[in-house]
Design a protein around this nucleic acid. Structure first.
Lengths: 226, 226
DNA sequence: GGCATCCTGACGGTTCGCTGACATCATCGA
DNA sequence: TCGATGATGTCAGCGAACCGTCAGGATGCC
């Protein structure tokens, strides 16, 4: 799963530049441009890492850091600042930051430091298991069980199941399924989706001919009933 | 328990200065003044943190770092150097260091960074063995046993095993394995990973053709079942 | 130079996924 | 109520993707 990085920085050029670079590295990125917003977003969005500018409108970086740490936020924080004074660095590090980089900095160095921080504090927000009825799906292990017994799903079947699960309760059209599972978006002419749905029902429903969870919505698509 | 810090630094003034300051902070400190000694001491003494100069007699810092990491040394390493080039920093961080400080530096900043590194990676001197089935892996000594008997693993096999072990239970893609074991992230076209997995199974599974722990997840990667 | 180790490419077995034909079902108008 | 119509369920088979395996050659270390 993509690690999430929150960038709290009021200079738009720098913020957008960072976002681009982080996204290229495969992170999911959010921006906040003042202190209070940053703190709120850290607590709500639960990023795996925060890049925090020290000089911010509204509330400075130190206060943001203290606020979120007091609220129990444990992920690493990288402080970013123009002040190169040693006393500032020490203050930043002692107040709960995990790294401290002074501007101007090299983007590659920053990215390397981000990687190191995430390596040491691996993402723990796994949101792993979900399910319906007596079926459990563990995304980390890709193991699916029904009534506690493991069920063997073919790769495409598993992907299809996830696509339905991601929109649990909603009707998902065949075209949408094609797009999210197969990556095309041509219009469907074949029985491909249906065939896999049948197989899923056979493996996961107690009575495959009268499904209670993997439901057909005529002329619209399929729906996963929790 | 006092945290142990190993300082690998050939300049006596700097080394003694660091030792004094670290001891005042309450750490147990050892000094090494060349690369080979440093590497040996890291592996024998098992410090909780290593401060490693880049320019050393005998073996440079990068090689020391690689050597001890390959030997399973997991504690944080702080690199210390006169070279301020960004490419050096990136190289250091990517090759397994956890922080990188350029000379001249402030002692207080260094101490703060030491504190942060130790905070994130609390002393784990004892919890070095893990395993699955009848297989035990001791990261400290790099010894792997099965049914109590030692098994000889080639370096890459060992690294691969660690990579799987670090995400025990979860599916690890070939690309992820490539990245964490080989340091690459190009897309895979060859049978490299598979070949090594086969070898691991041959050495660690009781029935290599019907593995119970090192499992294949079709189209996704491999998974280590505890 | 000898040895272990590593990577690669080829080959073969097995599983998987798509397709198209046909059966069945739901819906709606007569 | 019943048949027409279109949508969905079902099935079997073929081609392809994927993985396990192996041997040869390259590489690095002692």
């Amino acid at each position: 799963m993509k690690a999430r990085v929150l960038v709290v920085e009021d200079n738009p050029d720098l913020a957008f530049g960072l976002r681009n670079n982080l996204e290229i590295e495969g992170y999911e990125v959010a921006l906040a441009e003042d202190g209070p917003t940053g703190a709120a977003q850290a607590l709500e969005w639960r990023p795996d890492l925060v890049i925090l500018d020290l000089m911010l409108p509204g509330m400075d970086g130190f206060r943001v850091l203290r606020t979120i740490r007091e609220a129990g936020f444990a992920a690493p924080v990288l402080m970013l600042t123009a002040r190169g004074e040693e006393s500032d660095k020490v203050k930043g590090l002692r107040s709960g930051a995990d790294d401290y980089v002074t501007k101007p900095f090299g983007v590659l160095e920053l990215l390397a430091r981000v990687e190191v921080l995430l390596r040491r504090a691996p993402t723990t927000r796994d949101a792993t298991t979900a399910g319906f009825g007596t079926v459990r799906i563990d995304r980390a292990t890709r193991v699916v069980t029904r009534d506690g017994a493991p069920v063997s799903l073919a790769p495409m079947e598993y992907e299809l199941l996830l696509a339905l699960l991601d929109r649990e309760g909603a009707v998902v059209s065949r075209t949408d399924l094609m797009r999210s599972v197969w990556g095309y978006d041509e219009s469907i002419v074949s029985r491909t989706v249906d065939t896999h749905v049948v197989e899923l029902r056979r493996k996961l429903e107690s009575d495959p001919s009268a499904p209670r969870h993997i439901l057909t919505v005529r002329k619209a698509g399929y729906r996963l009933q929790p």
